[in-house]
Amino acid sequence: MSELVALRALPPRFSTPSWKAVLGIAFLIALAIWAFAGAGISTEDFIDGLPEMWRLIGEMFPPDIARSESIAWSLVETFQMALAGTIIGVLLSFPLSALAARNTSPHWSLYQVARGLTALFRTIPDLVWALFFVATVGIGPFAGTLTIAVDTMGFCARFFAEGMEEADRGPEEALKALGSSKISIFFAYIFPVSLPSITNSSLFSLEKAVRSSVILGLVGAGGIGIELKVAMEMFRYDQACTIILCILILVIGVERVSSFARSRLLDQSSR
């Protein structure tokens, strides 16, 4: 077989970046330098703090399990808050996401309102929501549950809506041609094709809720956070260690179960 020889010149491996790309990269580098300058990074302080870190870790071991029963109940409460808050948040995210998706929203004004609400829920940090709910409904797990529900809505409504918007237009046109109403198109097509994305986002939001529910106790919104705060303030680092280990077990456990559930649910979604 004769060797093939191209008649035209071989294109270069790399193309020369445009002046806009060079300017963009220079801007990003300048931005990073500016951020480091303002972040108060001090190698000296870090090195000075190393023996202190080592001492604190040393005081954590062996972990003190004297208050394990109380810690276990707080851990259960943390999980209950996370699960209940996620369920409320996911359920409320459905209508909100249907209004916040371009292809399912009945009117542009509703679309804008739904998008605005979703952004509001998402951009305000959960600790701020926790402070708000502690001040309005009082100290305890209910404030934490409401915080998680709002935080979940901000997260899920956005991703549910994006999943719905990714739905291919072809089957939607086919259902329209069959005489379907908008609501039938939503439930017979948009919902089932978005289900993998909805399942994924819901399980991720449960994992996220478990992690954030640990912190909420620091401001009085229930859960194990308050136990951790008290232990640290009383310099009982050995008790704090027990609490941190319990949190670690809970978070990893929820992540494992969530991954397993995700793979099983996504495999069996034909109906």
Binding site: G170, P192, L195, P196, S269, R271
Partner: peptide
Amino acid sequence: KHNLVSRLS
């Protein structure tokens, strides 16, 4: 392209 609803039977 048939335009069937995938994931459904």
